Amino acid sequence: MALPKAMLCILGNQPGVGAPEEVLLRAAGFATATIRWEEVAAQQRGWMQLMPILNDASLQAWVFAGRPADITEELLSQVSMLTLGMSRPTPPVTAFVLLGSGEEPAFPDLLDHVRVFHGNASFAPRLAAARLKPMCMLPRPFHIRAHVDPFIGQWLEIGPLENETWDGFMAGVVDAEVTAFGIGLRGNLPQKSVLHHPQSGIKGEWGDLRFSACAAKNSMTSDMACYMRVEGCPRIVFITGYQDENRAQEMEKGIRHLDLF
């Protein structure tokens, strides 16, 4: 019988292949592959290359090991995008093993399923047990999925929840930039798109943060989605009603958002 697989991502300057965390995962029954995150991040869109590995149903544990300071906002945004991009029903058991002292990072609701261990003493057997239990994911405020690929970049698929209809929309990201958008059926980026009263390059401020957004007056049902190409590491993804001069002040009232870090 094939062993369950684990992917160990080493952060910072911790030891790589042969790391204590790798040894412990193997002892707990995982066939473990180890990568250094800084080597992945050094390649252009290198982190996106992990998507096919994460979609493999036999991968049952995804582990990061490093100091608390190594868990940056950029890393959490990328982990969130990869989590949103998985086509499997639930992500593998995901864990951060914190080595050394430092403040534990805050994880967004999207990563509520992530387990945090201080030191590596007992994390591996606990992950082996956790993979056999059903995983509960918090509900999301709207349909959202990521499409990440080294060749096409990162796209967010955003649409109505089941049995919901939108009469136009404005969708955007905080601390990143929307560089293109279109509308199509859920599941695949559309080859062409007909947009009603489109607005692109929308800029603004959300408190002390800056956002970038797009908008269109298309009516959308739950089998449709807006596809946004995003540059950078988005902090927040949001959706609200179509904004025109008469509704410019209503954005805060009807906004729904999801934090990525």
Rank of each mutant, 00 (worst) to 15 (best):
M1K: 04
A2P: 08
K5E: 08
A6N: 04
L8Y: 02
G16Y: 10
V17W: 03
G18K: 12
L25K: 03
A27K: 09
A31S: 12
W37K: 09
V40N: 08
Q44W: 06
R45T: 10
P52K: 14
P52R: 11
D56L: 11
Q60I: 04
W62E: 02
R67D: 13
E74P: 02
E74I: 13
L82T: 13
T83I: 00
P89T: 14
P89Y: 03
P91V: 08
V93A: 15
T94S: 11
V97K: 03
S101N: 13
P108K: 06
L111D: 10
H113R: 03
V114Q: 03
F117S: 04
C136P: 02
R140G: 05
P141F: 08
F142D: 10
P150I: 11
P150S: 15
G153H: 13
E157N: 04
E162Y: 05
E164D: 11
T179H: 01
G182D: 02
R186G: 00
N188M: 02
L189F: 00
P198T: 00
P198A: 00
Q199M: 00
S200N: 00
K203L: 02
G204L: 01
E205W: 00
W206T: 00
F211S: 00
N218R: 09
N218K: 09
T221H: 13
D223H: 13
R229A: 14
R229S: 10
G232M: 07
G232N: 14
C233K: 08
C233S: 15
C233H: 13
P234V: 09
R235D: 06
Q243D: 05
E245M: 08
E250R: 07
L258H: 06
L260F: 09
